[in-house]
Write a protein that binds this DNA or RNA. Structure first.
Length: 577
RNA sequence: GGUCCUGUAGUGCAGUCUGGAGUGCACGCCGCCCUGUCAAGGCGGAGGUCGCGAGUUCAAAUCUCGUCAGGACCGCCA
């Protein structure tokens, strides 16, 4: 070993020992010809070394320093430092690597540095305490999850990265097949199909910390490549799956924060939409949606009389905070999410309204609104009237916009959202219903009778896990019965022949005895980000990509040799104009 | 595909609205001084394609158009 202990480990108990520490020069402070301090840093912390000033070491030089640990002279201890009571003196310095001056400081001042500069020099960024902590949080999350799964008898299985292209879902990354020019593998959007086949294969309980790839536009909470805890279980009902996942995510949170979060709340999808206007409600704050539809059953106000659903939210004491400008912005916001408009009411002292539409509301209606919201002077009320889903979703967005704390701000509020609809909306191109989760999702047993007559009202045995308003992941009980699968396909506009062509390799195995099974997958990047107190998953990924997908450090993606392309049977077209 | 915001020294910024010499600040860097500092201190110094390209103008970091790059969001992400 080159070192006897780590920089951040030195304590008074080491006084008198001769030690060797290795690390980077965090800072050098000179005091004349024969005294200089070198703060040596590694991942564990910083220790002060007293060296002869004739040694030429500069920031970020990599050193091995050997010397004797002693108490610092009285009055010179540093309580900011874990090693602040001691120092290494009479130190001899071995330069292991010289270094050019760093592009940005290695402390928290670099938090303000342009992210592109940090990414271009990520190997420097990673030296910083923040990134060291974040990657270690992530490692702890992985470890906790793995141990929780092992403890519950799950088997870790790796599944292929090279798989057939399937047209459903996210845009795939594809890989040319050298031995079959013109044919391509697809990289997995998720191991979904394989994990169900593992159930058919009798694995009983599978998990994998799996890399998934989706060629969709990047966001603060999305990368091309992301990692999820992927799991599947046989002979289970919904509660069994939720219980198994709960252990893992609660363990992970406890391991990182030291505090075990509350039990995971449960709410049906319908309740979540009704109460919070979102299928991933943030339960850290209230401001729930209030039902107003009955109040306006016979209203003369045209904007309300034709709407199927009228709801609102109340901003306590918000009247003063929201001037005309902010309200106009909120209205634009509401429109961008699909509302035709937004009604705002400021509650006055006599519980009447200051509002452009006050004159259209009857006295009874106004009183009913005040009572429905339990409103008081100074409150701001925002109302949306539209079809049910639009009303809920728009208010959900407004609620988040107005009341939501930063995602990483505690406490941690896990939530199960259950009973998602089996079908959502209609595909714009085919006119057929679209699957809410995926086409292999089991309908709710109480609703199977309704598949034929009222498919849109059929609930699925599908569920999402939400943490502080971020969707962590989703899962479902799968269909294991061929007849039922055919029925669901039929409603998705997929014929037997088509199903066979598209999913044959997946469906045929189910003829040979498929156990009832279900599973789940959640994003480890998102979970780790929230637990690390970051609101952007790039901060907990060692080498992430910016929104453009162009890696400023490696310059990927890059062009390849013509010879390479010839071998693959690929010719690159000039860019479309 | 769309909306909004950003781009000035190695890094972070001011200057842009209201055009007048790259005018400036902090950190970092280089040199000298300094024996108890710890985001040390003092003195001196170097460092600029104002993202790029056009246009307007006597004159553009500043105004206009285009373009590139980055960010947040909408679409998209079964």
């Amino acid at each position: 070993m080159m070192r006897t202990l780590r920089c951040g480990e030195l304590r008074t108990e080491h006084v008198g020992q001769t030690v060797t520490v290795c690390g980077w020069v965090n800072k050098r402070r000179e005091h004349g010809e024969h005294l200089a301090f070198v703060d040596l840093r590694d991942h564990s912390g910083v220790v002060q070394c007293v060296v002869d000033n004739t040694v030429d070491v500069r920031s970020e030089y990599v050193l091995a320093i050997t010397g004797t640990v002693r108490l610092r002279p009285e009055g010179t201890t540093n309580p900011e430092l874990s090693t602040g009571e001691v120092e290494i003196h009479e130190a001899t310095v071995e330069i292991l690597s010289a270094a050019e001056p760093p592009v940005f400081p290695m402390d928290e001042r670099a938090d303000g540095v342009d992210e592109m500069v940090r990414l271009k020099h990520r190997y420097l960024d990673l030296r910083r305490a923040r990134m060291q902590r974040n990657l270690r949080v992530r490692s702890q999350v992985n470890r906790s999850i793995r141990e929780a799964m092992y403890a519950q008898d799950f088997v870790e299985v790796e599944t292929p990265l090279l798989m057939p292209s399937t047209p459903e879902g996210a845009r795939e990354f594809i890989v040319p097949a050298r031995q079959r020019p013109g044919s391509f593998y697809a990289l997995p959007q998720s191991p979904q199909l394989y994990k169900q086949l593992l159930m058919v294969g009798g694995l009983d309980r599978y998990f994998q910390i799996a890399r998934c790839l989706r060629d969709e536009d990047l966001r603060a909470d999305r990368q091309y490549e992301f990692t999820q805890l992927d799991m599947e279980m046989s002979f289970v009902d919904v509660d069994d799956v939720l219980d198994a996942v709960e252990v893992a995510v609660l363990d992970a949170a406890e391991a990182v924060t030291g505090v075990r979060p509350d039990e995971v709340a449960r709410m049906t999808w319908h309740d979540a939409m009704e109460r919070f206007g979102s299928d991933k409600p943030d339960l850290r704050f209230g401001m729930e949606l209030v039902e107003l539809t009955p109040i306006f059953a016979d209203t003369g106000f045209k904007a309300f009389s034709t709407a199927g659903s009228i709801k609102g939210i109340k901003v306590d004491g918000g009247a003063a905070d929201y001037g005309r400008n902010k309200l106009d912005n909120l209205t634009d916001e509401a429109k961008s999410f699909g509302a035709k408009g937004m009604v705002w009411l400021k509650v006055e002292a006599d519980l009447t309204f200051n509002s452009p539409v006050a004159k259209f509301l009857s006295e009874d209606e106004s009183r009913a609104i005040v009572s429905a919201f339990d409103a008081a002077e100074g409150d701001l009320i925002l109302i949306i009237a539209d079809e049910w889903s639009t009303t809920c979703e728009v208010l959900g967005e407004l609620r988040n916009r107005i009341g939501r704390p930063p995602v990483s701000e505690g406490p941690y509020k896990y939530l199960w959202v259950t009973d998602f609809p089996l079908f959502v909306g209609v595909d714009a191109q085919t006119g057929q219903p679209r699957p809410g989760h995926h086409p292999f999702c089991h309908p709710h047993p109480d609703d199977i009778d309704k598949i034929a007559d009222d498919p849109m009202s059929v609930r699925a045995l599908a569920y999402d896990l939400v943490l502080n308003g971020w969707e962590l992941g989703s899962g479902s009980i799968r269909i294991h019965d061929a007849d039922l699968q055919r029925q669901v396909f039929a409603h998705l506009g997929i014929s037997d022949e088509e199903a066979d062509a598209r999913f044959g390799f997946f469906l045929n195995p189910f003829r040979y005895g498929a156990p009832p099974h279900g599973g789940f997958a959640f994003g480890i990047d998102r979970l780790a980000a929230i637990l690390a107190g970051e609101d952007n998953i790039r901060e907990i990924i060692a080498f992430p990509k910016p929104q453009s997908g162009l890696d400023p450090m490696t310059l990927a993606p890059n062009e390849v040799d013509d010879r390479h392309l010839d071998e693959l049977g690929i010719r690159v077209l000039p860019p479309a104009t």
